Computed example of a mutant assay.
Amino acid sequence: MGVPVLRSTCLLLVLAFCADARAAAPDTDQARRIAEQFLATRQASAGPQEAYEAGDVAVADLDGDGESEVVVLWTMLGPTHWHHGVTVLARKGQHYAPAGETDEPLGSVEGMVVRNGTVELKTKWPGPNDARCCPTVPRTLRYRWSAGKLSPAK
Rank of each mutant, 00 (worst) to 15 (best):
P48R: 07
T9N: 13
T80R: 13
R91F: 12
E53C: 01
A25D: 12
V70H: 08
V72D: 08
H95S: 13
D27L: 06
T140A: 12
K124F: 05
V88G: 05
A131K: 11
R115K: 11
E101A: 14
A131T: 10
Q37D: 11
S8Q: 12
E101L: 09
L73H: 14
R91S: 10
P128N: 08
T102D: 02
T140C: 08
C134F: 09
A23G: 10
T140S: 12
T87V: 13
N116C: 00
P79Y: 01
K92D: 14
M76H: 00
K124H: 05
Q37G: 09
M112K: 01
A23E: 11
L15Y: 08
T9G: 13
V114P: 00
P135F: 01
V5E: 15
H83G: 13
S146K: 15
S146A: 15
D61E: 02
K92T: 14
A90Q: 15
P138D: 12
E67L: 07
H83P: 04
R144H: 15
T102G: 01
R132M: 05
P105V: 09
V88L: 08
L6W: 10
Y52F: 11
T75Y: 11
G100I: 04
I34G: 05
S151C: 12
K124I: 00
A44E: 05
P4W: 02
V86H: 03
H81A: 14
Q94V: 06
A16E: 08
D29V: 13
W82N: 10
L77C: 06
S108M: 08
G93V: 10
S108L: 10
T87L: 05
T136V: 09
V114K: 00
T80Y: 05
Q43V: 05
D61M: 02
G93K: 10
G64V: 08
M1L: 14
A60H: 05
V114R: 00
D65Q: 06
A44N: 04
G100D: 07
K124Y: 04
R7V: 15
P98S: 11
G93F: 09
G107M: 00
K122C: 01
R139S: 08
Y96W: 13
R32F: 04
P126R: 13
R33F: 02
Y52C: 00
L11W: 13
A21C: 13
D29Q: 15
P48D: 09
D65N: 14
V137A: 11
D130N: 06
E104K: 07
L141T: 05
E110G: 09
E101G: 15
Q37R: 13
L11N: 14
P128W: 10
A153T: 09
D130T: 06
S146Y: 14
V5I: 13
D61S: 01
P79G: 03
N129G: 07
N116Q: 10
Y52M: 02
D63L: 00
E110P: 01
R22W: 14
C134K: 08
M112H: 03
E120V: 11
Q30M: 10
P26A: 03
L62I: 02
T28C: 09
A46E: 02
L89K: 02
Y96H: 12
